[in-house]
Amino acid sequence: MKKSKIILFILAFIIWIFLNWKPDWQHLLVGFFIAVFVSYITGDLFIYRAYILKNPLRYWYFAFYYIPIFLWECVKANFDVAYRVIHPALPINPGIVKVKTSLKTDTGLTFLANSITLMPGTLVVDVNREEGVLYVHWIDVKSKDVEAATKIIVERFEKILKKIFE
């Protein structure tokens, strides 16, 4: 519980510095007291497993494996949507399919759902945590089978996110 409060204090202080650029000592003093107050009140609300933040390998994977793939998929998704919207015949083939995931933690599932939502042609509708199932609305259904859909949609991000958040 102590560690999570310290991490929240650091986050709140960084956001305060971003809001009051450039830092001088008066701003820093006021920000220090406000960050202590905020982290004292809401400290044990958000972060449960503080020990995973110690490993520097996770930051490495996050910065150099996750973010470039994520940005590339976003750009591809934009051009995909633009093509479908401009085309006069409206080439869509929508449906809701079911995919499986093996991630268990809250943060991992949140990041997986966000990445799937910004990927080309997919949108998460609901998450079932007990069975590890995601329901995905797909604008161009290529396969109704669970395994094949899992291979196309989930697998690329799941491998990276498992190294980062599990």
């Binding site: 869509i92 083939n93 929508p94 449906g95 809701i96 399919v97 079911k98 509708v125 609901d126 329901y135 259904v141 109704k144």
Partner: peptide, 10 residues
């Protein structure tokens, strides 16, 4: 869903 939808697993 739209009438042309393929499947609705949910």
């Amino acid at each position: 869903l739209w009438e042309g939808s393929v499947c609705d697993a949910y």
